[in-house]
């Protein structure tokens, strides 16, 4: 499988398709089961508030997974991803309603590297808050 994005046609500053993700309590429960991360602050409001959080918060790794999809949905080939890292800078509170939280992910080509690879910088915004820092990926193009 090869990346559907051609290295020669990409320039620094290119913007990847934006991704808006709505996160509800159901999504967190499903992710808890699928990932095995049953930390109470991701599903129990009483305990979340007891430890000083504004509400139940999304798993950092759930947010990271969505950030990764910005890159893997772009190239389509999951084997093209070589490196992927984030800092968890702010929590994503998920209220107990039908709307949940919305996080907007964007990616921009920051650098062209050898071996037909590019570095992509990713941002993740929940309202006015940036919830990931230094989020970036190195991906091999075709």
């Amino acid at each position: 499988m090869a990346s559907r994005v051609a290295f020669d046609q990409v320039v620094v500053g290119d913007v990847l398709p934006e991704k808006r993700v709505r996160i509800t309590r159901l999504d967190l429960v499903r992710y808890a089961g699928a990932s095995g991360d049953f930390n109470v602050i991701h599903w129990n409001e009483r305990v979340a508030k007891l430890v000083g959080l504004p509400d139940v918060i999304a798993h950092g790794m759930y947010t990271m997974a969505q950030a990764g999809r910005v890159v893997t949905d772009w190239v389509t080939d999951p084997a093209a991803l070589e490196e992927f890292g984030v800092r968890f800078t702010r929590p994503v509170p998920v209220p107990d309603d039908d709307q949940g939280a919305e996080v907007t992910f964007t990616g921009v080509v920051a650098e062209k590297l050898d071996g037909q690879r590019v570095k992509v910088n990713i941002t993740a915004m929940c309202g006015d808050a940036s919830v990931l820092g230094r989020a970036n990926a190195v991906v091999r193009l075709s």
């Binding site: 950092g60 790794m61 490196e83 992927f84 890292g85 968890f88």
Partner: peptide
């Protein structure tokens, strides 16, 4: 708390 995560594949 989880501060940072990085993967190299």
């Amino acid at each position: 708390v989880h501060g940072e995560q990085r993967f190299t594949y």
